[in-house]
Simulated scan of single mutants.
Amino acid sequence: MVLSRRLPDAAVQLLADVADVVQPPVDRPLGAAELRAAVAGADALVCLLLDRVDDALLDAAGPQLRVVANIAVGYDNVDVEACRRRGVRVTNTPGVLTDATADLTLALLLGITRRVGEGDRLLRAGRSWGWDLDFMLGTGLRGARLGLVGYGAIGQAVARRAAAFGMEVAYAARRPAADGAPPAEHLPLEELLAGSDVVSLHCPLTPQTRHLVDAAALRSMRAGAYLVNTARGPVVDEAALVAALEAGEIRGAALDVFEDEPAVHPGLVGRDDVLLTPHLGSATVQTREAMAVLAARNAAAVLGGQEPPTPVR
């Protein structure tokens, strides 16, 4: 059992009950060559979203590898088909990070519409200011339309929170939401983009969603609209986003994920109409431990000949 990063004690202990656990000697992301060397001979790999699991890594691991347990709800870092060809199970960690990610989405939404980051920078820079009727005016949320791109568990959790702020909610998804989902209008993507005051992304990264928000999509949004992304960075064409902001095609953006993490497009960094956080969607003590424990349970189940709690189908 190989871990690509050090995990919380609760997860390590669960794994130690079923296998010998090998943790990396340093707590930093391993390079591709380092990870291939580390996984050689392993029967299980517990990895993070920055670890690329591809043919080269699977070949380096060897035919005895049985499971790749990814500590993330998304698994765009894992070549699932390459794993299936080798009989390797792939698992992820959905559910346990839903509330944390939805909470951060609302924090970003409030932060960008009420200019929180901009105000914080003003005060820290020691710039003069004074209360006035038109000082640093933001945008109120009551009655505004929130357009959700993707309406799975996280999108629905965001919808519930947005309703508490008096927002109208619509969503674009391949199919209508199942019974029990928060009430929201199901719209084609083009109509959603054109009619929303805030567009928030909650879709997985796939070949179809890469650069889903491109120059054309941004031009179709309202000039006073905001874009929020807590999904995956490459869903947004960052160069197109910078151009749209410079042209005034949208009012602002709040991003927790980036196209080429950990790098951020330099055109985004110096802008007051952009709020940036370093991939903090699931970053609470409780959530990160729950993710690690779920990944450990998945790996342990496969090694024990059982069905894992959250397999990737």
Rank of each mutant, 00 (worst) to 15 (best):
R86D: 01
Q64L: 08
D51K: 02
A72F: 03
R36V: 12
N92P: 09
L49E: 00
Y75Q: 02
R66F: 02
L106Y: 07
L106M: 15
D51I: 03
A33W: 11
V67H: 00
L97N: 06
T98E: 06
L49A: 13
G95A: 02
R89L: 11
C83E: 05
P24T: 03
A69N: 02
V67C: 02
A69I: 03
L108V: 07
R124H: 15
V96E: 02
R52D: 08
A38K: 04
E34W: 11
R86S: 01
R52Y: 04
L108P: 04
L49R: 07
V73I: 15
V21H: 09
R86F: 05
T91A: 03
V67Y: 00
D120R: 15
G74C: 04
G31A: 14
V80A: 05
R52W: 06
L133P: 10
W129I: 05
I112R: 03
N77T: 07
P25V: 15
G111M: 09
V26M: 12
Q64I: 07
P24V: 08
G41W: 04
L104F: 05
E118H: 06
T113E: 03
D120Y: 15
L133A: 14
V116Q: 10
A61S: 03
N92K: 04
L30Y: 09
G41T: 04
R86C: 06
V26K: 13
R36A: 14
G41A: 04
L109M: 11
G95K: 05
A44F: 02
Y75N: 00
L104A: 08
A33L: 14
T139A: 12
D59V: 15
L48N: 06
L122K: 08
L122G: 12
R52V: 11
A38P: 05
G140L: 12
D54R: 09
D43H: 06
F135T: 14
D103A: 10
L35K: 05
G119T: 06
R66L: 04
D103C: 09
V80Y: 02
G138D: 05
L137V: 14
D120A: 15
L106E: 07
W131P: 12
G95L: 00
A38C: 11
G138Q: 00
M136K: 05
Y75W: 10
V18W: 10
Q23R: 13
A19Y: 07
L35F: 05
I71A: 09
R36N: 13
D99V: 13
S128V: 11
R114I: 11
D54P: 09
T91D: 03
R28A: 15
R85E: 13
L133K: 10
N92M: 07
T101F: 03
V39F: 04
L30F: 14
L141V: 08
T93A: 01
L108K: 06
I112M: 08
I71G: 05
L48S: 09
R66Y: 00
Q23A: 15
V68T: 00
V78Y: 00
G126H: 11
C83N: 02
P63Y: 14
L65Y: 01
L45W: 01
A33P: 09
L123S: 15
V39Y: 00
V46N: 01
G74N: 04
D76I: 00
L123I: 15
G62S: 08
V78I: 08
L110K: 06
R85Y: 07
L57V: 02
G126A: 14
T93N: 06
M136Y: 10
V67P: 00
G62C: 05
G62K: 01
V67K: 01
T113S: 04
L65S: 04
G117K: 08
L137I: 13
D59C: 13
A60L: 12
G126Q: 14
